[in-house]
Design a protein around this nucleic acid. Structure first.
Lengths: 106, 106
DNA sequence: ATACTTGGTTACATAAAGTAACTTATTGAT
DNA sequence: ATCAATAAGTTACTTTATGTAACCAAGTAT
């Protein structure tokens, strides 16, 4: 298996968004900047994978990391412009879910 | 880790769409009904996982499977109304990818 | 009977994710 | 000074998901 014929930009976007947790993380950050621990408990992701994802998403330019030298240190994660621009995608998913996902399949 | 506070319908939608290959399969089927072998080569997925995904998506009501007793047998997969209704989601992903994914990150 | 085609399945190998304990740095209490 | 507490990770180990390639069943045409 090697050929795909699919637009490489689209394929790349899908590969980013369909990685486990990524879409949920963006969704959380759309409500404002968040800290590591707060994301972990609100999304229900393990520290290990959260750490991996945040690094990947930072490299992809979707989020930024800000060190605040409080006591103890606070790390604040927030969306970049590129990350914020994914809002319409998530809004469409939300709309679809309201219309097509029934209560008993959750 | 157990609590999420996220709307369960949205979370379910994300869990469907962020499963590997699922979004790409829907994207292919949006261009019309397709056969097993055709999907396999156009998307670049292994027969094993394709078979698994198609069963899951059928159970989720996103696609339907039609047996055509030709020679040899033809199995035609196509989107249901629920599946077709995901088009706006994929269109938004496509738009985002055109605007934000650069050539060199593909 | 034999070979060919479609739509799978199986057994085995590798990669990704989950779990829980541990680390580093800073600070406030004893 | 020592001990416990908190934030943000990391590490070692287990379980699950995916990839690979060989194999199988049904239906012909030869």
């Amino acid at each position: 298996m090697k050929e795909t014929d699919i637009c490489p930009r689209f394929e790349k976007a899908i590969s980013i968004l369909s990685q486990r947790w990524t879409a949920l993380l963006i969704h959380q950050l759309l409500t404002g900047p968040k800290r590591f621990g707060s994301i972990q408990t609100s999304v229900g992701i393990s520290g290990k994978v959260l750490s991996e994802r945040l690094k990947e998403m930072e490299k992809q330019g979707i989020i930024k990391r800000k060190v605040i030298p409080e006591t103890p240190v606070i790390i604040e994660y927030s969306l970049t412009e590129k990350g914020i621009s994914l809002e319409p995608v998530l809004r469409e998913v939300e709309k679809w879910s309201q219309e097509w996902i029934s209560a008993d399949e959750t």
